[in-house]
Design a protein around this nucleic acid. Structure first.
Length: 465
RNA sequence: GGCAACGUUGCCAAGGGGUCUAAGGCAGAGGUCUGCAAAAUCUCUAUUCGUCGGUUCAAAUCCGACCGUUGCCUCCA
C-alpha cells in the first residue's frame, strides 16, 4: 500500500489510482529562459524516481512535465538579447533536457508547451467566463477568486488573510485583490495570439490547467512541484480547473521542499545558484542523486560543497563494491531468478520504505547495509544476489549506479597500455630487489603526470586521476 | 502581520508513544592489507533528541508556551 502525505489534506493518504494499474502524473516544469540549477533538479529527480517506483510496483505511468515558454521573463530576454522567441525557448529546452539526461532523469512522456495549446486555452477561458468565474476588462480576463468556494484550501489560507497581507499594489480593474490574470493583452513586439478578447497571451497559471487536463483528463492522480508553487500557482490552477470542469482536479498534491544554500533558497533571483552541469561534472551523477535522496523530499535541504564531497565518497563506496563483484565474476555476474529469503527480506524493506511517503533516505541506508554485507560475506551466491539487488533492482528505481565506471580500465590507447605495463614490470622488479627508493621515484614521477599506481594483493593497477 | 514547515551525535540525516542505551553517510579512533604510500575493507564512536512545563504506567515521538531557522503571502522547482 503506497501512502503519501498530501498537501491538501496534510495527512498520509493511501494512494488509490483513478484507473486500476495506471497513474497520471503532472509535474510543473521550468520556465525556459535560462540554464537550470540544482534546485530545479530536486523535483525532477525525486518525481522521476517516484515514476520509476510506480512502474516497479506494476503501474503504467503517464508522466507529463511542461515547459513554460510564454512568460514575462522570456519576453524580457527577447527584449534584452534581441533573440527571437523560438530561438530562446528551444535553446533552453534543449539545454534542460541535456542536463536532466546527464542527471539520469528519464524523459517525460509529454513535454507540452503552452504556445502549442492556445486554442485549448481560449476555450478553457471561455468556459470560465460563461460559467461566471471570470470577467473581462479592457481585453484582459481575470479570475474571480470569490466565486470559487474552495479557494485557499490547498495553501491553507483564508481569503481574508490573503487580502490583509496583500503587499502588491492592487490593479484597480480587479474586483478583488486576489483575482489573477487568465488572458493578458499583448504589448507590441510580444508573442501574441488572436482571441475573443483581442490579441494577447495566456497568463501563467492557466497553462498548467489547460495542458494537464488536455493530456491526462479532467481528473488525474498526482500533481507535483516545488512548494514555492503552492501559492498562488497551484491554488489558482485548482480553482480554475475545478471551476471549468466541475470535477476534482488532482487527487494527490505532492510538493518538494526547497534546496537552500547557506540557509537561503537557491534561486536565480537570489543569484546563489550552482548549475546542474557543474555539479554532475564535479561530483558525479550518483553523488548528486544520493544527495537529493538523502532527505525526505518534502523538507528543505541545504547545499554545501562539503556535503557533495561526502556523498561523492559515499557513492564511491557502493560503486567500489559493485566493481569488485564485476572483477570477481569477470564481467557482469549471472543471476538466477529464484529469490532467496534474504533477497525477499531486503526487497520487502525496500518496498516498505518507499511505500511510506517515499522515504528515499531509508532506502539509501538499506543499500549501505547491503554493501556492508557484500564486503564481508564469503558466500559468492549471496554476493551476486546483493549485486543484482543494488544494481539491477534498487538502482534501477532510484536511477543510481546505472553505469558504474570500471575503475581498472585505464585508457583506449593500446600503446599507452603497453608502456604502462612495462613501467609497472620494471618498478615491480625494483621492488622485488628492495630498491624502494627507485621504485618510489617511478610512482612519484607518474603521480605528477596524474597517473597513480595502486599496489594491491592482485598486483599493481594504474589509473589516470 | 497571516499561512506552512523545521530544530536529533563533530557535520548531514532517519525515526515520529514502549522493540530507541536512536538507522545510514561523512569526519574521527583502532585493526587488516602493503616495503612504504594511496586506495579498499572491518570494528568502535549519542543513556541522548532546541528550552521550559504538561498528558501518560511509558515521550525524541502527543499537547502548550518560549527561543531559533526557513519557505510562501510578488516571478520562482
Amino acid at each position: 500500500m503506497i501512502r503519501f502525505t498530501d498537501t491538501l489534506t496534510k495527512s498520509k493518504k493511501e494512494f488509490i489510482p483513478l484507473e486500476k494499474g495506471k497513474v497520471g502524473m503532472y509535474v510543473c516544469g521550468p520556465t525556459v529562459y535560462n540554464t537550470v540549477h540544482i534546485g530545479n533538479a530536486r523535483p525532477a529527480v525525486v518525481f522521476d524516481a517516484l515514476r520509476r517506483y510506480f512502474e516497479y510496483r506494476g503501474y503504467k505511468v503517464t508522466y507529463v512535465m511542461n515547459f513554460t515558454d510564454i512568460d514575462d521573463k522570456i519576453i524580457n530576454r527577447i527584449k534584452e538579447e534581441g533573440w527571437d522567441f523560438e530561438t530562446i525557448t528551444s535553446t533552453y529546452i534543449r539545454e534542460y533536457l541535456r542536463d536532466m539526461r546527464a542527471l539520469g532523469v528519464r524523459d517525460a512522456n509529454f513535454n507540452p508547451r503552452i504556445s502549442q495549446y492556445i486554442p485549448e486555452t481560449i476555450s478553457f477561458i471561455e468556459t470560465l467566463v460563461e460559467k461566471g468565474f471570470a470577467y473581462v476588462v479592457d481585453g484582459e480576463v481575470f479570475y474571480d477568486v470569490t466565486k470559487f468556494e474552495g479557494y485557499g484550501e490547498l495553501s491553507h489560507r483564508k481569503l481574508e488573510d490573503m487580502l490583509s497581507g496583500a503587499r502588491i499594489e492592487v490593479d484597480q480593474r480587479k474586483k478583488n485583490p486576489g483575482d489573477f490574470t487568465l488572458w493578458k493583452p499583448a504589448k507590441t513586439g510580444e508573442p501574441s495570439w488572436e482571441s475573443p478578447w483581442g490579441k494577447g497571451r495566456p497568463g501563467w497559471h492557466i497553462e498548467c490547467s489547460v495542458m494537464s487536463t488536455s493530456i491526462l483528463g479532467d481528473t488525474f492522480d498526482i500533481h507535483a512541484g516545488g512548494n514555492d508553487l503552492i501559492f498562488p500557482h497551484h491554488e489558482n490552477e485548482k480553482a480554475q480547473s475545478e471551476a471549468c470542469t466541475g470535477c476534482e482536479f488532482s487527487r494527490y498534491w505532492l510538493h518538494n521542499g526547497m534546496l537552500q544554500m547557506n540557509g537561503a533558497k537557491m534561486a536565480k533571483s537570489v543569484g546563489n545558484i550552482i548549475s546542474i552541469r557543474d555539479a554532475v561534472k564535479k561530483y558525479g551523477r550518483d553523488a548528486v542523486r544520493m544527495f537529493i535522496f538523502s532527505t525526505q523530499f518534502r523538507g528543505p535541504i541545504d547545499y554545501s560543497e562539503e556535503r557533495f564531497e561526502d556523498w561523492k565518497k559515499a557513492a564511491r563506496r557502493v560503486e567500489d563494491a559493485l566493481i569488485r563483484v564485476e572483477e570477481l565474476a569477470n564481467g557482469i555476474p549471472s543471476f538466477t531468478k529464484s529469490a532467496s529469503d534474504w533477497i525477499k527480506e531486503k526487497r520487502k524493506m525496500f518496498v516498505e520504505f518507499l511505500d511510506d511517503d517515499f522515504n528515499t533516505s531509508r532506502v539509501l541506508s538499506l543499500i549501505f547495509e547491503i554493501v556492508k554485507e557484500m564486503n564481508s560475506t564469503d558466500d559468492i551466491g549471496r554476493l551476486f544476489e546483493a549485486y543484482w539487488l543494488i544494481k539491477g533492482e534498487f538502482g534501477d528505481v532510484m536511477g543510481l549506479f546505472t553505469d558504474t565506471p570500471t575503475k581498472i580500465k585505464q585508457s583506449d590507447d593500446s600503446k599507452m597500455d603497453e608502456v604502462m605495463d612495462l613501467m609497472i614490470d620494471v618498478r615491480n622488479s625494483l621492488r622485488k630487489a628492495k630498491l624502494f627508493e627507485q621504485a618510489d621515484m617511478i610512482r612519484d614521477g607518474l603521480n605528477e603526470s596524474n597517473i597513480s599506481l595502486l599496489d594491491g594483493p592482485e598486483g599493481t593497477k594504474w589509473q589516470i586521476t
